[in-house]
């Protein structure tokens, strides 16, 4: 039946992810601009204050006496991103359930899966923007510093060259090319995405936000520790993605694709479990 222009008609088509459009709009407004901007600025401050060429003091015992804390920046920033992902996703599902807004949403013609998927997609997209925005800017600064300083280091050269403001000597390996650097950022993002998916799952299963947060922190700790001590046995896991980033920053040549793909695949499996549990969760 033709509808008069300008009139409203009831929505009758039911889609697999019914209602996700509106929910994504709401979730994006939670992440953008303030929350995302805060994390970008935090990343840049960490770089600018602790690891940029103008902050890092040269090690007088090492010639040529100029360097930067490329490895230090990536480890610190990865940790900040993982911890922030766990902290900011802690109440995403359980907070909505406890407040009653989850019940309000699913009493409308909105699929329960849409609520979880919208939260996940928005958070994953926000971290992609945050990681690109705060991660790409240091690259030309570091590259410029290498060219100006003329260190002549090759991949694999690991020398203690700088001292950070907190008094730690950093290790330096030559900056990888931009494509590989972006691959490292993708690996960090894939790990963050996995943490977000796990936080969604915990929010659908547990009843205490403290428990969700606590387990999230345990997960982040486990990823970091496994990345450091896990060796090649963790390469097809999110810890393997972090390990690959650190290895490349250290000057070793390791594959990035496998840990990235396996982390994303695991995230999808975990997200599926979150949807399954949320579908059965009582929301009153």
């Amino acid at each position: 039946m033709a509808t008069e222009p300008g009139t409203l008609t009831p929505i009758e088509r039911i889609r697999p992810l019914q209602g996700i459009g509106g929910l994504l709009g709401v979730e994006f407004r939670i992440w953008f601009p303030l929350r995302a901007a805060f994390l970008v600025v935090a990343g840049l401050i960490v770089f600018g204050v602790m690891y940029a060429p103008w902050s890092a003091a040269p090690n007088p015992s090492v010639d040529p006496g100029f360097g930067f804390l490329f490895f230090g920046f990536l480890t610190t920033w990865s940790a900040i991103l993982l911890i922030s992902a766990a902290s900011l996703s802690e109440g995403a599902v359980l907070g909505e359930i406890n407040r009653g807004t989850a019940g309000w949403l699913v009493a409308m013609p909105i699929r329960r899966a849409s609520v979880i998927v919208a939260k996940f997609v928005a958070a994953a997209a926000a971290y992609a923007v945050i990681i690109v925005a705060a991660g790409v800017l240091p690259y030309p600064i570091l590259a410029g510093a290498v060219n100006r300083g003329g260190t002549g280091f090759r991949a694999g050269d690991v020398v203690e060259v700088t001292q950070s403001p907190i008094g730690m000597w950093g290790r330096f390996a030559d900056l990888p090319d931009l494509g590989r650097y972006l691959g490292m950022l993708a690996a960090i993002w894939a790990t963050v995405v996995f943490v977000i998916a796990v936080m969604m799952l915990l929010g659908t299963v547990l009843r205490s936000r403290t428990a969700v947060f606590g387990l999230g922190m345990v997960l982040v700790g486990a990823i970091v520790v496994s990345a450091i001590v896990g060796g090649t046995s963790v390469s097809a896991t999110p810890a393997g993605a972090v390990r690959a980033v650190l290895q490349i920053a250290w000057g070793n040549d390791v594959a990035l694709l496998m840990p990235i793909l396996s982390s994303l695949l695991l995230s999808i499996v975990v997200l599926g479990a979150a949807v399954w549990f949320f579908d059965r969760r009582e929301l009153a």
Partner: peptide
Amino acid sequence: ARRYLDGP
């Protein structure tokens, strides 16, 4: 409203 109604 957007969850129930379609239109301009």
